[in-house]
Each structure stands twice: as structure tokens, then as C-alpha cells.
Amino acid sequence: MSETILAYGEFFEDKISPASLEILTPLWEISRSLQKKLLLLILSDDLKRVKEDNSLKRALCDEILVIEHQELKEFRDDLYSRVLSFVAREFHPYGFFFPATLQGLALAPRIAAELGVGLCAHVNALELEGERLIMMRPTFGDNIIAKLYSETYPIMATLALGAFSTKEGSENPIIKKFNLPQDFDWSSKMKVRAKRKTKKEINRLSVAKVVVAGGLGLKSKENFLKLFELAKYLEGEVGATRPVCYAGWTEEDRMIGISGVSVKPKLYLGFGISGAIQHTVGMENSEFIIAINTDEGAPLVKMAHVAIIADAEKILNYILKKLKS
């Protein structure tokens, strides 16, 4: 087996995605323990712009490998995955990891199936048990974490967004161009005809200083929407649990947790949230946690710095009334 670990560096409009830098933190530790080289793999139509991206200057990896070709200007799933599968076959890496961004979620499964290897989703911790790499993610049941491993190589996983903090390296990684063979098939069945940038700022929730989150304990969509009023007073963002999103009280991009956003605010308020692990893995690093819940035994109540044992709806109504008066 080769001496490398690959990480996918999502490069969009001249910028590396912060999520790609985050996943380097746990991979760096694993690569040091196993004495393997950590390579960040970037696909772009212009090597120069990769070199100009300042956030890559201190990326925590041994080398940045850039595949440069004019056909890589737009993200096209079939072509990108063909390129990455080719690189994986060349390097025979020990592992190949992706951030769980939409690009990562689109690419990793295509490559895993192409290589015929296992793929774990939304992993939020990595650990070596002897030679075996254990990938962890919450699973069914209260506060239960599953330890997964893969029997095939490269070990592949998408790593949960926000689960790891970006760390800078002590040296600038070498940026190298990696050339594909002359006869490489650069064709794609996909053509990007138009792009519209989102009006919303991306990932505002993940960088918010204050997060006001609500769960089913708020009893209704109407009550949940009141969190936006409170968030305004606190200059914060509104977050939600998975059941709240599935109930249609708010959009899924407000979901905090394993398959949503991870938050690390200075203040986290949880209204009517019991604290299923699928949610708490996305907020457990908050600096100060206040839980409002009727159930004294709820996991979020235990995690909280201050737990207010009361009906979340009533407390929310009282504080909004007082703030308005």
C-alpha cells in the first residue's frame, strides 16, 4: 500500500472551501501516526490562482497536488470523479477523504463505487485502534456512537462539516502540478449553462456568535418562528433540530447536527430541544449553553451550563414580551 493519504480540496471561484481545510486537522494526526504523506488534491483550470489563494499557504498537509486543465473550470460530477478515480488508482492511497459538502457528497460515492470500496458518511471523529482506522458517527438510540471501519482500501469517508477546527501548519506545503496522461478522457456528458449565486451568505449559522435553536418542544411552527425575533435582539442566527426541519417549520439549511451544520457560538440557546446526539454533535463545542426544557433528564439539560426547567413556549413568550415592553 502506498504511503499517502488523500484529501479532496474543493476549489471554487479561486478559493479553497473552508471545509476542505477543516478535514486536514484529523487527517494530519492520522498521517503522522502512520508515517504517511498527506496530500491535498485540487482540481482547477488555473494553477496560478491556486498558488495565489492565501488560505492555502499554511494548509496542514505535506503537499498540495493540483490537476490543471481547462475542462475543470466548472464542477462536473462525471468528469471530476473520473479524474479523482484515476489519481486514486495511481497513488493507491491508504485513505481518500472528502468534506461532506454538496460537492463531496456528489463525488465520494461515485469514486467509491468506481473503485469498489466502502464509504462512510458524515464521520465526526477518527481514531486509530492499532492498525485499524475507526470512523465514528452517531447512530440510532440515545447518545450512541457507532464505530465503523472499512475492509477495503483506500479507506473512504466524507467528514462532517464543522466537526473539526482548522489548524495551520508550521511550513508552507509544496504546491505541485500533477499531470494526467496525454490520452486522458476529458469529456463530460454535462454542460454548465448558467450559475446564480445565492443571495444568502453561506454558512452564516456556522460562524454565528449567538445561536438560538428550537426543537419540537416548542410545539408549533408559529412558536418556532418567534425565535427569529429573539435572534434579532441577540444578533444571532436561528438553528433547528432535524425533526423540526422535517416537520417543515424551517428550511433544512438551519439544521444543526450530523447531517447539517456544526456551530461553535459563544452562546447557544436550546428551546424545547431534548438533545438527541444527532443534534448535539453539531453544538457541543459551544462556549455557553442554556437549555430550556421541561425534562430534567434530557441530554441537553445535562450538557447545559444553565438549564431552565420550564415550558420552552412559555419562557419564550415571557422574554419576548419583556423585551418588547
Binding site: 469498489g116 466502502g118 485502534e129 440515545d142 457507532a146 471501519y149 472499512s150
Partner: peptide, 10 residues
Amino acid sequence: PTKVAGVFEK
């Protein structure tokens, strides 16, 4: 190819 090595409670 992916297997569960075990589970633990937090």
C-alpha cells in the same frame, strides 16, 4: 465493505 466495529454510549 463497511463494517460496524462496535457502539458506545456517550
